[in-house]
Structures are given as structure tokens and as C-alpha cells.
Amino acid sequence: MKLVVDGDSDKVVGCHILGPDAAEMVQIAAIAIRMGATKADFDATMALHPCAAEELVTMREKWTPPEQAGQSTS
């Protein structure tokens, strides 16, 4: 599961899911994304537990590309 976020606007600009029911999940996420939902909006949404789609609203850590890992100053 992967969210692509515009770092300047915080808008979610891409959502990619590989796994059971990925099509069902992306159809619903599409509504929020088309409306311009930000990563903060995703984070503020309560998770439905236990289900696979809850991962969409519980991804807290930014992923760092391997070549940048180690150079990070923050």
C-alpha cells in the first residue's frame, strides 16, 4: 500500500494498493483524492479495525529513499 503526497500542498496525488480487495479500496479512496484530500485528512480519519483498508489512514512515517538515508539532518 502506498500513498504519493505532494510535499508542498500535502494533497494525496496517488494511491497504489496491491492485495486483496485493492479495487474496492481504491474506488472509495478515489472520491477523497479527487476532492483534494490532504495526507492530514487521511490521518485525521478514524481507522476501521481490523481491516486492510485501515492502513490507508494509519501510515505515519514518511518513507526515505535509500540514497537519502543517512544524509538526513532532521
Binding site: 502506498k2 504519493v4 505532494d6 510535499g7 508542498d8 494525496v12 496525488v13 496517488g14 494511491c15 497504489h16 494498493i17 496491491l18 492485495g19 486483496p20 480487495d21 485493492a22 479495487a23 474496492e24 479500496m25 481504491v26 474506488q27 479512496a29 478515489a30 483524492i33
Partner: peptide, 18 residues
């Protein structure tokens, strides 16, 4: 397993967004 996708791939976003 199934793939569901919407919007930009990471590769596209890196070209389009600062």
C-alpha cells in the same frame, strides 16, 4: 493479488511536483 490504483505513480509525481 489484485492491484488498485489512482493518480500519479511515485515516478510521475517526482517529475510533476517540486
Amino acid at each position: 493479488p489484485e492491484v488498485g490504483t489512482i493518480g500519479m505513480s511515485e515516478e510521475e509525481a517526482r517529475e510533476m511536483c517540486a
